[in-house]
Design a protein around this nucleic acid. Structure first.
Lengths: 162, 162
DNA sequence: TATCTATTGTTATAGAATAACATCGAATGA
DNA sequence: TCATTCGATGTTATTCTATAACAATAGATA
């Protein structure tokens, strides 16, 4: 689980796109994507795998900005509310959302070796859970669906490694 | 989210059954359900909603037993390994498993008002996630499926309350 | 400009989980 | 019976995650 330190060009491009999309979404909604919030979103997108709040805080401090945990958590709360990032409950970490604008819970494949997470949006899973809930007269507010396992790269790496 | 302090008779009966089942399962597997582990399982079953590790620790201390966090976490680890309890990642809490013996991830409906959690075992959800994972050559090790919302009782309570 | 509100800074603390090492206790064999 | 061994528990300390409470600041509005 070694997070790379420098984002590759593909990540940078993804981050740029995510940030400009975020600007649009926030403008449409009349909410403020401040410097801090924008920077936190950028930090998250520059990283190839989900990041913890304190890792984000470290980067902010490296920026020269002063800050404490609430600084980060408030920015994260804003980004979560706007559907710009997801929180992975099983890791206590945060990652960028590829479909901002439309609020959705999403489903995630999380590799326990490299830490990377893939977002799914399987309608069958979501609908089936809704049906199960309805049968119990349960009102659904959010879904947490996280599949822990190993991605192809890490399976191969462990085979060659041994 | 007010957890009741005294278990009702239905809970006590459920706890008794869960404990005797746990005894059988552990004996069959040749693992030891010690006093401490048994007591932690009992505490969890005596409570109507999922419990946090530190809440369990408080009960243990009320018993007169000395203890620190590792005391509880080791017992919880054992019970998780044996499939006797589940951990709810979105709450950092633990609850009894109704199908001990068969290791399974389960799916949960969690009421944000009263804190109670209902366990599902929907095969469609599990199979669909497996299929999605396979399509990405992702090896599944565990599934976390937690639906947050409001149970019928709490929906009605809030309607009458306003 | 004065005011109001949202945002950020700051300090302190609560809550969740584990590392590392000491001690105890139940099973096993001599 | 005693000694040994290994699993289980006790103990202390620390790390990581998250929030409460209040102060200071900056942006918008009248």
């Amino acid at each position: 689980m070694q997070p790379p330190l420098e984002p590759c060009s593909r990540q940078l491009a993804a981050a740029r796109q995510a940030l400009s999309q975020a600007e649009i979404v926030c403008q449409q909604r009349g909410v403020r994507l401040t410097q801090l919030r924008r920077r936190v979103l950028e930090i998250i997108w520059h990283h190839s795998s989900p990041l913890g709040a304190y890792a984000i805080l470290d980067v902010l401090r490296n920026d020269g900005r002063q800050g404490a945990p609430p600084t980060v958590y408030r920015a994260l709360d804003f980004l979560l509310e706007q559907g710009l990032i997801h929180r992975l409950a099983s890791l206590n970490m945060f990652m960028g959302c590829r479909q901002p604008g439309a609020h959705h819970s999403g489903q995630f494949l999380i590799c326990q070796d490299c830490g990377q997470a893939d977002e799914l949006n399987n309608q069958t899973v979501e609908a089936t859970l809704h049906t199960e809930a309805m049968a119990r007269h349960f009102e659904v507010l959010a879904q947490t669906v996280e599949v822990l396992g190993r991605c192809l790269d890490c399976q191969e790496a462990s085979r060659h490694g041994d």
